[in-house]
Amino acid sequence: MSDWNLPWEGGCRCGQVRLRISAPPLLTMACHCTGCQRMTASAFSLSAAIPTEGFSVTQGEPVIGGLHGASRHYFCPYCMSWMFTRAEGMDWFVNLRATMLDDPSWFTPFMETWTSEKLPWATTPALHSFEKLPDFNDYKRLTDEYAAQAVKPGPSRRA
C-alpha cells in the first residue's frame, strides 16, 4: 500500500464534509450516462472505486441526493457537491468522485461506461470502453489489469 502514498484526504467544495481513503482504488472510470452528465453539469463523471473498508467520512454528514434509488448518491448538505455513490447490492466498494480528493492530479480513467449516451465530442484516455456497463464476470479481469498497470500517485503536491 505504501506505493500508493496512502492515506488520501478529500472533501467537498466548502470543506464541511471530509473523507479519508486508506485503500487503493479497484478501478478508475469515466461515466458518460445522462444521469452523470446532469449531476455534474459536464460531459461525464470521474470516479475511483474504493474498497469499502478503505473509505471513511471523517467530518460532516453527507446526504442522499440524485434519484434516491438503488444507487445512493451522497452530497454535502451545504455546498451540494456530489461526493460519492454507493450502489445497492455492491457493498464492497464506494464510487468516489475523484475530484473530491485533495490531490486528484494522478487520476486517469482506466475505463469508460455508458458510451452509448456520451456527447459526440467527449473523449477520455480510458483503455476500455463499454456501451453500458461491463459484464459482471469481466470485473475480476478489469480490476486485475488495473492493479497491474495503474499509475500511482506520488507525494502530494498540495499543501
Rank of each mutant, 00 (worst) to 15 (best):
E61Q: 15
A23T: 09
N95Q: 14
V57S: 05
F55G: 00
P24M: 02
L67S: 15
H68E: 14
Q59S: 14
L46W: 07
A48D: 04
S56A: 15
F107P: 02
G15A: 11
A159T: 06
G154C: 04
E9A: 11
L96M: 08
C76N: 06
E9G: 11
P134Y: 07
T108S: 15
N5R: 07
L133M: 15
L101G: 03
T40W: 07
F136C: 02
I50D: 00
A148N: 08
P125C: 10
G11V: 07
I64V: 15
S42Q: 08
C14P: 07
A159E: 13
F130M: 03
G10D: 02
P77R: 08
T40F: 08
G11M: 05
G10T: 01
R141T: 10
A147I: 12
F84D: 00
A150N: 05
M29L: 15
S105C: 07
W114K: 04
E131S: 08
R97D: 07
G66R: 12
F110S: 02
N95Y: 13
W4K: 03
I21L: 08
W106H: 09
D102A: 13
F110D: 05
F107M: 06
E61T: 15
C14D: 14
S105G: 06
L46K: 01
R72S: 12
C33Y: 06
K140V: 15
V63S: 06
R18V: 06
S71G: 12
R18E: 08
Q16H: 13
F44G: 00
M83K: 03
W106C: 04
C14T: 12
N5V: 02
R72K: 15
T52Y: 01
A150K: 05
Y74K: 00
L133I: 13
G60C: 09
E145P: 00
H73D: 04
A126C: 09
A150W: 09
R86P: 00
P62K: 10
G154M: 08
T58M: 13
D102I: 10
T108F: 11
F107S: 03
L6N: 01
P25M: 06
E61R: 14
E88D: 12
P104A: 14
R157P: 00
G89K: 08
E145Y: 02
C36F: 04
W106S: 04
L67E: 14
W121P: 01
G54F: 08
L127G: 05
R20Q: 08
S47L: 10
N137R: 13
P62H: 08
P109I: 08
F136A: 12
S47W: 09
E117I: 05
W114C: 08
N137P: 01
L19W: 11
W114V: 02
M90V: 07
Y74A: 03
L142N: 06
T28I: 06
A122L: 02
S81L: 01
S116M: 10
M100P: 03
K118E: 00
F55M: 06
I21V: 15
T52Q: 09
R86C: 09
F110T: 01
M1G: 03
T123W: 05
R157H: 05
C31D: 03
P25G: 05
V151C: 03
D102L: 07
G60F: 10
M83D: 05
G54K: 05
P109D: 09
G65I: 13
D102M: 11
